[in-house]
Amino acid sequence: MPVGDAFTPDQLHDIERAVRHAEEASGLHFSVYVGGADSETRPFAVELLNELDDPDHTVLVYVDPAGRRLEIVTGAEAKRQLSDTAAGLAALTMQTSFATGDLTGGLVTGVQQLGTNAHQAPLLHANEPHKQ
């Protein structure tokens, strides 16, 4: 591991795997950014979301380890699947791990939780004609 990297290759692999699983479970895009903010964290996180290819269907997790701030930003369509309450619960989970210095564990658990909460319920009987 080069000196100064935030995560080891194994840790990165774990986070990427959690992101993949969350995307498969929810059908949304997930993105994780760990680093300092140029400005206030919330506008900066929204700016990051807008740099992505499909921001409306994306959930961005922004972590500022120096400022000890966490932002979860959901796009317009993603917000319909992942409520602010569910995002808040995931933020609480991550916050607990981050406070003990476990960035990787917090991200993996939090992203998994976001993916599970954003899970789309299957449409039942949607293709069947209405019967009286």
């Binding site: 591991m1 000196v3 100064g4 990297d5 935030a6 995560f7 080891t8 990165l12 986070i15 990427e16 992101v19 895009h29 997930f30 993105s31 994780v32 950014y33 760990v34 680093g35 300092g36 990051l48 740099e51 992505l52 290819d53 380890p65 120096a66 000890r68 981050f98 406070a99 003990t100 210095g101 960035l103």
Partner: peptide
């Protein structure tokens, strides 16, 4: 494993963007 994150101390690493643009 290199330096470990300790809340309250300065952050040393460059930004990491997983699943970025």
């Amino acid at each position: 494993s290199g330096p470990r994150y300790r809340p309250g101390l300065s952050w040393w690493a460059p930004p990491v963007w997983i699943n970025g643009p």
